[in-house]
Nucleic acid binder design. Structure first.
Length: 708
DNA sequence: GAGCGAAACGAGGAT
DNA sequence: CGTTTCGCTC
């Protein structure tokens, strides 16, 4: 794409005021923002420092930054280009004190939130309904993203009552720990700009032109933030595609894009319907699938990239056959690996693909696996560092108080906790006064005193030393390397390497930025492993459909096209969720430039058990003549059938079946969901309690008709 | 309090 | 099937 078409040109040269660019897949969406930013600077004489561009991933932001800088011929771009979350962090660093909170706050990542919530669920009083920590976090997040606090009015069930309790506890715990979570990074700035006119005006004066990429993915807090930022001058330029909205489960509100014209007075709309990425065969297939959705504005994408080969479909016997087919096909067609991507619905599907790549000797990179920063060693070190700048951070304190083991076990810790609760102070303060607590053993007291001393010493050094030097001192003082060596006999070398890699990345940070520990820690919470995608590395890329958004490859393999997987099983009962699955399929298909290959497996191992599936309905929705079905290789000799599961005969579990549970006693099946190995049954016991079980796993037996 | 083996539970997507 | 938590022993 070396020139701009007239629609792109029109979009870029919109002057002041609100603008919505409805851009189809592969229509040069990012390029429009890049060119628009460059145009404002070179043609309209806008100072780059007055430009703001908000994205959803660091990867998108850094690509945009590079391209604008290139376009303007500068080394370092003065415009603010980054993710919503990093912008929120930027605002809070400057102005969080206006909300009465200190500037040295901790940013909780997903794992921190989860471990906090697990503890809160455990500590619930005994009368409460059991809920999962993840569900509770989702419930809370829904309210936060809408800038609401839940109240008694929002309680409709026993679960809600528990969630409300957990919300109160969660809110208090994060507040007391002087921490913010991912939602807070949007919610607090939105509140700040809403409640403090002088702060709002400061940012409005600074950022005269506000741009938002992937606008269809914005949630309400992000919408409010964008609204506040542009309210003074009205220069809000957003780009999005309702057909690529795949994050409603994360709170994205499609109404933001659907209602843009009504919300922002005088808004202009530009449509980009020419696709520059995919061959016609691929685009037709993707268009046909997504056209089965009811809720869409509707665009007619077309391409001039040529007809292209038909989209191929492979019917595999199982996930290994599917993976081997992908590897065989890449090898036979001699595809350049850096232009190959394998896309799947769930992270768990990566395993089989990886194995086939390894065996076939093809290099690959997986995105979304175990992330560097979520390794135990890194989390331990980070917890120490966080404690240095924020002693109120209880999550970190709990993590490292006895790591490496220093003789402060569960019993001592419980004492400390009770003591803190009685006196209404934070845990670290209790540790400081430990000498006066005669209930603790002498050994524990000595250890705790030494621990407090250690933290104080390191905190003192943190003021003068860089992060790298500080971490080395920390590793020495705690004997952390020795602890790693003694841990896992096989793995310890790799683990030490991780530690070393982290130390050198700290030194790098010091050289790059001057080494402020607080900023270092806050920034790290927003780093994700899809940030470092190297498009030129000679490796294939394995990734989920979700993380593939915004990327493109010459050759795409989309695997696991089965009912229950894509569309995912949890969406089957809900037409809106099903439409989101369809959009996800559309996004995946439109990543391909030259060739698209689909695959599905008649049987697949999940949770350690084989289960069979039907081909995805999305395959039926593609035009019959658009797909070319590849004949399977002669079937590999079947392995012996897996032994029958130990549980009851699943076909006999249905509404009304009377069962006996080893732990809960007799009950009746209220209803079932799922099927095969994933068949779940909700059972009401004679005690009046109800619970849901995975039939294949629960210790159930069927009570024959006349047992009562 | 630490270390070990057994049992339980979990995986839908991610800034 | 892989990982985390539980519970027992020293």
């Amino acid at each position: 794409m070396t020139f701009l078409n007239s629609a792109q040109q029109t979009a870029i040269e919109q002057g002041d005021g609100p603008v919505l660019v409805l851009a189809g897949a592969g229509s040069g969406k990012t390029r429009v923002i890049v060119e628009r930013l460059a145009w404002l600077v070179s043609e309209r004489g806008v100072d780059p420092r007055n430009l703001l561009a908000l994205t959803f991933t660091n990867r998108a932001a850094s690509e945009m930054r590079t391209r604008v800088a290139e376009r303007l011929g500068v080394d370092r771009l003065a415009a603010w280009v980054g993710t919503f979350h990093s912008f929120g962090l930027f605002v809070l660093r400057r102005d969080i004190e206006r909300l009465g909170r200190p500037a040295a706050f901790t940013v909780f990542d997903d794992a921190d939130q989860l471990s906090l919530m697990k503890r809160l669920v455990k500590e619930l009083p005994s009368g409460c309904v059991r809920v999962s920590p993840r569900e509770a976090l989702n419930w809370i997040s829904r309210f936060k993203q809408w800038l609401h606090s839940p109240s008694e009015d929002d309680v409709g069930s026993a679960e809600d009552e528990t969630y409300l309790k957990l919300w109160r506890a969660y809110h208090a715990a994060t507040y007391n720990a002087n921490a913010v979570d991912f939602d807070d990074l949007l919610v607090l700035p939105a509140r700040l700009l809403g409640e403090h006119a002088e702060v709002r005006e400061k940012y409005q004066r600074r950022y005269r032109y506000v741009h938002v990429d992937e606008y269809q993915d914005t949630n309400h807090a992000q919408f409010v933030l964008a609204q506040h930022l542009s309210a003074g001058h009205g220069n809000l330029f957003v780009v999005g595609d309702e057909d690529q909205s795949i994050y409603s489960w994360r709170g994205a509100d499609l109404d933001n894009i659907l209602q843009f014209e009504q919300t922002f007075e005088g808004a202009r709309v530009v449509r980009l319907e020419q696709n520059y990425r995919s061959k016609e065969s691929i685009l037709n297939c993707a268009n046909a699938v997504v056209s089965h959705n009811q809720f869409r504005l509707g665009k007619t994408l077309w391409t001039a990239q040529g007809k292209g080969d038909p989209v191929r479909v492979y019917e595999a016997a199982d996930e290994n056959d599917e993976a081997q087919f992908v590897v065989r096909d890449i090898t036979e067609r001699q595809l350049p690996l850096n232009e190959v991507a394998v896309l799947f619905r769930t992270n768990g599907q990566a395993r089989a693909i990886e194995e086939a790549f390894r065996r076939g000797g093809l290099p690959y990179v997986v995105y979304g696996g175990m992330q560097f920063y979520s390794r135990k060693e890194i989390k331990d070190i980070l917890a120490y560092l966080r404690l240095l700048v924020n002693p109120a951070d209880e999550i970190s304190l709990r993590r490292v108080l006895n790591v490496p083991p220093r003789g402060i076990g569960g019993v001592s810790f419980q004492r400390i906790e009770e003591y803190a609760k009685e006196r209404g102070v934070d845990l670290f303060s209790v540790l400081r006064e430990v000498e006066t607590d005669q209930t603790l053993s002498g050994r524990a007291r000595t250890s705790i005193t030494a621990f407090v001393q250690l933290i104080d010493d390191l905190a003192l050094q943190a003021r003068s030393a860089g992060v790298g030097a500080l971490v080395e001192r920390l590793l020495d003082a705690t004997g952390y390397r020795k602890y790693v060596e003694q841990g896992d006999a096989k793995d310890f070398r790799a683990r030490l390497e991780i530690v070393d890699e982290f130390v050198s990345s700290c030194h790098q940070y010091d050289r790059d930025t001057g080494g402020d520990l607080t900023s270092f820690l806050q920034d790290l919470a927003l780093v994700s492993d899809t940030d470092n995608l190297d498009p030129d590395a000679p490796t294939a890329t394995l990734l989920t459909c979700h993380s593939a958004k915004g990327l493109e490859f010459d050759h795409v393999f989309l695997v696991g096209l089965e009912e229950g997987l894509l569309p995912h099983g949890s969406s089957l009962g809900d037409s809106e969720e099903l439409e989101e699955e369809r959009r996800l399929c559309y996004v995946a298909m439109t990543r391909a430039r030259e060739s698209l290959t689909l695959a599905w497996a008649r049987s697949r191992t999940m949770y350690g058990e084989r289960r069979t599936a039907a081909a995805s309905r999305f395959l039926d929705e593609a035009p019959r003549d658009a797909l070319h079905w590849i004949d399977a290789e002669p079937a590999a000799p079947r392995r012996a059938a897996a032994s029958a599961p130990a549980g009851v005969d699943a076909t006999r579990i249905q509404m009304g079946t009377r069962v006996r549970h080893a732990k809960f006693g007799d009950g009746t099946v209220m209803y079932t969901s799922g099927s095969g190995a994933k068949l779940r049954a909700r059972i009401r016991f004679q005690t009046g309690r109800t619970r849901e079980f995975l039939v294949s796993r629960a210790p159930l037996e069927i009570v024959e008709g006349n047992s009562s």
